[in-house]
Design a binder for these strands. Structure first.
Lengths: 335, 335
DNA sequence: GCACGAAATGTGATCGCTCACATTTGCGTG
DNA sequence: CACGCAAATGTGAGCGATCACATTTCGTGC
């Protein structure tokens, strides 16, 4: 592989002039620049990122820590962030963690910091992760997709709490009085925020707050919980008439359980999801849900990152409220 | 930030001894090693990846090129590959491409090669990508998740063709004679392979081969196509009795269209999907589909990569056949 | 045609590590 | 106790770029 000296020799200039051409620094005569460019092409030369990073102490690389599950939300956010990062000239090194425990976190951070990333980006929203983080001394800026409002890093998010309140308010407005909640896994910040929104909205309306059911985000858990509820006659006639599901996938599981029992939404039970995954509009029935704009989130994370790296104050409006999408899974209770 | 010399000074040894401790090279007395380790901890020292890469010409980093859509398959494979890479001590730099055109590809490859990745991994399976690739001179090994059997790189995959044949055979065995296909987007290698499997299996059974319908992988397209088919009375009684959908999500759209029309699977139409996403078991009705083990695929990609980097021949059994999962969306045709 | 300042280009040091090789230390042996 | 050899440690060069500064070239006004 050719290096800068080879190029310089071939172009008949000094290595510094080549460097100037590479970095597009002003004072190079067009003719000289052309000669250098030609030499670069001829030798198929590519500057060594390692050598550059060594001297400039800038890698233009950010580390992305993400979850181990192939869920729609994190996957979309990650993709959007990648695009935004590349557009801004940053490279992304990724470390996905199979589990959200301390050891995995330490290892992920270590690997990334060891690459001299200029910043860390977190798309895992788990309390364990933030706890682990506070023990580490991370020397680079940190941006997290997170809405609990902790300190110690920059957080950009979609406001889970307000989204949940909107969803529950929708059910209350329809006339529902007993509204159950299927929460995401314990430890998830988003799950906790959604649960808090559900609880607060119920309390505000002076409605009964049952203990929430804990799922896994996956449809299977919604199915299991739904089946169990129906068996115990806790759902449907003379019982709970609505469910706020922590995400769309678990809502699908519940819908499946309803169908199995000869029940249907919204006739017997109204159900609201969260996320608005592409499938949600095609559930039986099409699901009312809270739409999260993950693409926008990913892009905003990068914006914030750039601000922070530039030493500018982080941009405002970091916690956007999501929007309720009403479809066919919600209706007034049958009375 | 401390460097190797600082550590050496603090530990009272030479920089070379520190280097030996870092790289775990034999000849260091335990007592010395301990002093060095203590110094490293005290200074919170981390070796510079850039400096290392500069001298060793090894970055222990692989470049991952992936698609722009947050689909379950690629997302799962990517995750699994990440895990496997980290376990093997490799870092992963990711470049996702918004579109699968030549320009995006060139840019992605450039960015990654510019980082001195030791290999490239492709989890986009698009003809355009492979075409673009053949024009570039990629100087590092390339591993692709791809099953068309092109030359020029190492390919690891799940056998899409055989999966499709299995799915269609299942429908034929049930007694279906007119089996439509909703294909994935034009340009997708997997879509083409699945279509080819469908076609070949029909031809083998001397059954009519209609022109396939082209979807986007997303449920919406299945819904549109399904609605259209029903309106044209091309589906259901005295018409096609079965559909082989290119993936599960589009199958969901078709199911939705059936429901809208007062029809149902499998009574009116049998339907088989592809992928076995976590939602598939909870579709109305639970979907018969072809299960792909993406986790295994990601892991196998990394294995192959390691073999190639070590100069060993790539491992055998690179194209596994997927497995049919029969659920409730398929049954013999009515009458 | 010469002086002068700006534009263009060149020179050598340096980033933090590993490599190849040189030197010192420790320890069993005659 | 000196010797020799292996184990342990040290020394200096060099990877390929940028940085700071030095030098040359060019264009302009008098």
């Amino acid at each position: 592989m050719a290096n800068i000296t080879d190029v310089a020799k071939l172009a008949g200039v000094s290595h510094q002039t080549v460097s100037r051409v590479l970095n597009d620094e002003g004072t190079v005569r067009p003719a000289t620049r052309a000669r250098v460019d030609a030499a670069i092409r001829e030798l198929n030369y590519r500057p060594s990122a390692a050598a550059r990073a060594l001297v400039t102490r800038k890698t233009r690389m950010v580390g992305l820590i993400t979850t181990g599950a192939p869920l729609y939300g994190p996957a979309s956010t990650t993709l959007a962030f990648n695009e935004a990062a590349r557009a801004a000239g940053y490279r992304v090194s990724i470390a996905s963690m199979a589990s959200a425990d301390r050891a995995a976190m330490v290892s992920a951070v270590d690997v990334l910091l060891g690459q001299d990333v200029e910043a860390l980006v977190l798309i895992v929203s788990d309390y364990a992760v933030f706890d682990a983080l506070s023990g580490l001394d991370v020397t680079v800026p940190l941006v997290a997709a997170e809405s609990s409002g902790r300190a110690g890093f920059h957080s950009v998010s979609i406001d889970q709490y307000s989204g949940a309140r909107t969803a529950v308010r929708h059910l209350i407005d329809l006339g529902h009085r007993e509204i159950l909640h299927i929460a995401g896994p314990t430890g998830s910040v988003d799950a906790a925020e959604r649960e808090r929104g559900w609880r607060d909205e119920l309390e505000l309306a002076k409605l009964p707050v049952q203990r929430p059911f804990v799922g896994t985000w996956f449809p299977e858990s919604g199915y299991t919980i739904g089946t169990d509820l129906i068996r115990r006659r806790a759902l449907g006639a003379s019982a709970a008439t609505a469910i706020f599901s922590g995400n769309d996938q678990m809502a699908l599981g519940v819908l499946h359980a309803l169908t199995d029992a000869g029940l249907a939404a919204p006739d017997d039970v109204s159900i609201v999801g969260f996320d608005d995954i592409p499938e949600a509009a095609h559930f039986p029935p099409p699901l009312s849900t809270v739409r999260q704009d993950f693409t926008d989130l990913g892009a905003r994370m990068m914006e914030t990152l750039l601000s922070v790296l530039d030493g500018r104050p982080a941009v405002a409006a970091e916690h956007k409220a999501p929007e309720l999408v009403v479809r066919a899974s919600t209706a007034p209770p049958r009375s």
